[in-house]
């Protein structure tokens, strides 16, 4: 049925977008690590603590992004299953 395929392909487009965002967040996290190292070398403690928190937060974002990808995978599976139900 055409409409099921439409659903599946729009889910696929979302999955693609989420995967790209995941790569972006990963690169942001690495950038945060670099800045953190620089701050620590300069001995600026307060900024270092705040940035360390930001780095942890980005880690959290990566986890959420992965969960989102998985959720989309489940949606795709359910849509696929409707073809054969």
């Amino acid at each position: 049925m055409a409409s099921i395929d439409e659903v599946i392909s729009s889910i696929d487009a979302n999955t693609q977008a989420v995967s790209e965002i995941g790569a972006q967040i990963e690169s942001s996290k690495q950038q945060a690590e670099e800045v953190l190292t620089a701050l620590q070398q300069l001995g600026i403690e307060a900024a270092g603590h705040a940035l360390s928190a930001a780095k942890d937060q980005l880690e959290e974002c990566l986890t959420q992004n992965a969960a989102l990808a998985q959720k989309l995978e489940q949606a795709r599976g359910a849509a696929e299953a409707s073809k054969h139900a």
């Binding site: 889910i11 359910a78 409707s82 139900a85």
Partner: peptide, 21 residues
């Protein structure tokens, strides 16, 4: 229909996850 409605639910949860992110 049941399967597709399941997909709808998952997509709603996905939207919520997107907003959280």
């Amino acid at each position: 229909a049941v399967s597709m409605e399941q997909a709808v639910t998952e997509l709603e949860e996905a939207e919520s996850g997107r907003a959280t992110l």
